[in-house]
Structures are given as C-alpha cells and as structure tokens.
Design a protein around this nucleic acid. Structure first.
Lengths: 159, 159
DNA sequence: CATAATCATTACGAGGCAGAATCGTTCTAC
DNA sequence: GTAGAACGATTCTGCCTCGTAATGATTATG
C-alpha cells in the first residue's frame, strides 16, 4: 500500500522551516563575518559588550548563556585583535570589566552594514512589507519563548 | 555622546531572528527526540529513507549533503536499534540499499506526533491563520534559497 | 585572623566531524 | 578473459569545540 515515493510525506511544519532557514542564515552569516576574521560567537560578544560596557566577564557570560570558561577564549581572540580591552576594576581586582576599543567600535559599524546585506540576501524573496510582517511575527514568537532580545540562543548548548 | 545604555542598538533584522529562533527550535526538537534516544540527524535520516526507500548510502549522503563516512555511524545507530536495515543488492553487491523496518515506521509515526507538538510549542504565539502565513513566507524563502524541501541544511558543512 | 565565597583562568577529557586510506566489488579496455 | 581503473562502504586518524573540574588570586564574613 506504499504510495508513490513522494519525497517527505508530511509537509514540513513552521518549526522545521524555522530551524532549516535559521541554520542556513547562520551559515551564511558565518561566511560573511569570516571576511573580517571573526566567528559568529565573537560578533555576539562584541554586540553584548557594546550594549552594556564595563560588565564583568561573568555577567556577560550569564547574559549570553555560556559557561565563563568559554568566554575567556572568546575575549582573548578579540583582545588579540585590539577590539576589546580588559580593564581591571580597582575597587575589586577580581573583576575584568570589558570595554570596546575604537577599533572595536569601527568593526561593529562594519558589521552593521554587513548585517543589512545579509538580511537582503536571506529575505530576497520578500518585499519590504512582507519582510516587516515576517519580522513582527518572529518577534512575537521570540517574546513568547522568553528569548533575551538581541541574544542568539546558540550560545547555550547546541546551535 | 553615548546615549543611554540601551541593550543592542540596532534592532535585530529578520535574518538574525530567523537564526535565533531556528537555533531555539532545533534545540527544543533535540530535547524532544532525545526521549526516543534519537539525535536530530538520525531523525532526518529516517525521514529520508522513508521518502525514497531502497536508495544506496551514497545516494542518501548526497541528498542530505553529508560525507558518506558520516552516514555510516548514523545508519549504524539506527540499525542497532532495529529501525533500519541494510539490504545487499544482489545485482550489485557493493550497494547497501536502505529500508525501514516495521519498528522504524512505527518510530516515524511517533515522530510525526512529536513534530506536531513541537510545532505547537514553537508557534504558540500565533493563531492558525498567522501560522499559515508564516509557513508560506518561509517556504518562499526556502525556495528562493534553493533548499531541498524536507532536508535540513545543517547536514551540509558549507551552505 | 581564618575560612568561605567569588572571579578569571587553566587543565583535562569526551564527542563529533571531515578527509585520507582500506577493502571488497564491478566495470572497462584490450 | 584478465588486468587495471572506478566505485561503494567502511575504518582510521587527527582536529576542533565544548563543558566540567581543578587552580590561583582576591575579597567578603564572622
């Protein structure tokens, strides 16, 4: 009673499509930022530091949902490039307050343009109005799922 | 002239939201299928075999976009559980034709229900009509990006 | 003043994945 | 008909990522 060998019997649901397109978007974004010698997690870290400068590494780690030990290598990579600085807090010398350098801010600006191109690449099939409706729906889902705005959940465990 | 420390200056675009929600959806799905002792790639393989039974491993590998050597372990895991069988092709004994067992089909049925629950979980913020519009837009994007329907691009290292 | 807690870092180990090498089988050329 | 190339599946090897556990330095507590 096997029907004709139709590919993939149940049509994929919205969640599957979200996962598939999200994976595609993430991979494409990784390619783009590779041109700046950056990995996606480093971009997220840059954005997090820009949003709330002076935070301790532990605070940032908690915000991003990553173990602190992972953050060390991330910060190292950005500090080696001169995009980020660790400032020792004089009142509590355990803490490393994270700040962007001027070069870091410049890189962030370049990333913003790059993000726009990325958006146009991914959403090329949609006109401006449709894109706005898509964004609105996605934001509603993100809020419903208690996602921290601007934070990619791929930091916690699998991406 | 730094404005108030607003979190994440540029509002996230649709591509970022897609990536973030896709990551979330993938992680949640992984949790769900873990209850059946399955990993997401194995689920994709099950679905691929169900869609076109009797294919060689190499053909399936090409469809999914994964190196053949990776498929071996994947098939092994499913074969150990008795969900999949390798049938030697008598006319060409190099080939291993992949087929689902009855247990495999039963598991696939369970996965279908599980997928519906997953869909409802992720899209809980949207009513039925909105969900349909979201699906339609996502499908258009997927077609525009030349994604193989039903195949998760996460198999491909480069996509 | 001593002990516990906190932050960053390092050390270690597990797991996953891609690419090269291997083994058996089939096709092609002569 | 046989030798050698081509092909499919598998194994092997090395790399890379990540999470957890220990380490060291500093500060809070009682």
């Amino acid at each position: 009673m096997a029907a004709s060998p139709q590919p993939f019997e149940p049509p994929p649901g919205a969640a599957f499509l979200l996962s598939a397109l999200g994976s595609l978007a993430a991979a494409r974004f990784a390619e783009r930022v590779a041109a700046l010698d950056l990995a996606p997690p480093q971009v997220g870290l840059l954005r997090a530091i820009a949003a709330t400068p002076g935070q301790s590494q532990q605070a940032v780690a908690q915000l991003l949902g990553t173990p602190p030990s992972r953050l060390v290598a991330l910060v190292d990579g950005l500090a080696d490039r001169g995009l980020v600085e660790r400032h020792r807090n004089p009142t509590d010398r355990r803490l490393h307050a994270l700040h962007l350098t001027d070069a870091g801010r410049a890189t962030l600006g370049r990333l913003e343009n790059l993000g726009q191109e990325h958006d146009n690449d991914i959403c090329g099939a949609l006109d401006t109005e449709e894109r706005a409706r898509l964004r609105a729906m996605l934001i509603r889902i993100a809020e419903d799922q208690n996602l921290t705005p601007g934070v990619h959940p791929g930091y916690r465990r699998d991406c």
